[in-house]
Design a protein around this nucleic acid. Structure first.
Lengths: 236, 236
DNA sequence: GGAGGAGACTATACGGCGTGAAGTTTTTAT
DNA sequence: ATAAAAACTTCACGCCGTATAGTCTCCTCC
């Protein structure tokens, strides 16, 4: 054999996993710039160069980490979405939003890794890091908009958004899943997304912490306002 | 003499200014992590260690830069605010917001420096970097809320925000300027701020660019919606 | 079961980084 | 003119990513 189940490959997989795990631990402890090949190797009792057998370059490792973390985020919000009953759109949106914020608060370094300036010299590869997870989060946001659209449609009565106003990147892959969502519905999606991301981002980066000691209360209030501004009744 | 006007001090001031200027140029060209003492020195035909005569450490330099950049941002939004007539609150808010976004788009690296993960290992000093500029921006946001409050008050009819819900940091210094603004008005301020910052942040960090090709149109629309949600009539 | 090869890892080295200590040159003040 | 002070350089250390070459171990095939 040698194709599957070989001791060699098992070890390889395990070592690969350990590298990522140690990297995540270092990031959690010291921020994104604590991810250094040498520190990882030190932690594992190896030489830094040994890691090159598993990842072509440090950026490759970071890309993989982003993928990993991004997937965890997508899992979290997807699970929340799936758990909440579709019959209560307001509650569903609030659940999604709370899951998003909750994950971010629990994994602030991960949030930075995904949405902020990542590791020092890191440049996201052309194809785009974590395209799957990004797609899933994007789909989730579109689902929020789709759920809210019937109630919020009137807000966009006078807008003139066209499909050509939006890029074909992630959207064209997400659109088919929501055939009833018009261009203005995408604007609504970006509105919701901008709002949530903005609040969470301010909180994570500490630009809110200096101003309020109950970001929790503020977030809940803001979420209620958002839902209300979508023409829905806020639910706990 | 030797106290003022000396050739020595003039040179010192000039060199200090040149260091900052070169650092900003490097940042604009290669992002925040392009700010290295050695690169600056190289650009100036000096040794890296010479910079230690002007800034105690690299973080000191970065702190100064943040101050500088933050001040420029505060100047930009303050000017916009002052220019717009107070009699038209909607227009004033939109002008402020557009100035904020405009500055951010013109100085994306500066925006990251202020609001994102800054230079790799940088840790903001205890006293807080750029406290003056932060105070001014905070005041600007409070002014937005103050202008909108009479129209938006009804939105917070059932909220129970207390002053104790907010930190005493920047707020206590800003509050006296707006004696009529109640606790819920601060929540309104943070709402506006979160909204604007969120949109601009998404745009600057490219998490919007992959989804829309007309962030401009989206921003205007969103701004109009925000103003409308405050009970005001959107103005061009 | 022994030889050969593949794969995992180390050793060494290079250039870049921030920064400390010590030395040198230039300017200023007396 | 001389001494002090300021500006600046040199050298050094330990960190980083990474390229190259070498070593050791284990699997495979005859």
């Amino acid at each position: 054999m040698g194709s599957t189940g070989g001791r060699r490959e098992r070890l390889r997989v395990e070592t690969t996993a350990e590298i990522q795990q140690v990297a995540l631990k270092l990031m959690a402890a010291g921020g994104p710039d604590a991810i250094t090949l040498r520190a990882i190797a030190r932690e594992m009792g190896m030489t830094a160069n040994a890691i090159y057998g598993y990842f072509a370059t440090r950026d490759d490792l970071v890309t993989t980490l982003i993928n990993e973390v991004y997937t965890a985020l997508a899992d979290a919000v997807d699970a929340a979405w799936a758990k909440a009953p579709a019959a209560r759109p307001a509650h569903r949106i609030q659940t999604w939003a709370r899951a998003f914020r909750g994950w971010a608060l629990a994994n602030p370094e991960g949030f930075r890794l995904i949405y902020g300036d990542p590791v020092p010299g890191y440049q996201a590869p052309e194809g785009g890091a974590a395209p799957d997870a990004a797609h899933r989060v994007c789909t989730g946001i579109a689902a929020l908009a789709d759920a809210a659209w019937p109630h919020a449609e009137h807000l966009y009565a006078h807008s003139d958004f066209q499909w050509s106003d939006f890029d074909s990147g992630l959207l064209d892959k997400v659109r088919p899943a929501f055939p009833t969502l018009p261009p203005a519905g995408v604007a609504l999606a970006l509105r919701i997304w901008g709002h949530l991301h903005g609040l969470v981002s301010l909180e994570i980066y500490g630009h809110l912490r200096t101003q309020t000691i109950s970001p929790d209360k503020l977030f809940q209030e803001e979420l209620a306002q958002l839902v209300r501004s979508l023409g829905l009744e806020s639910e706990a």
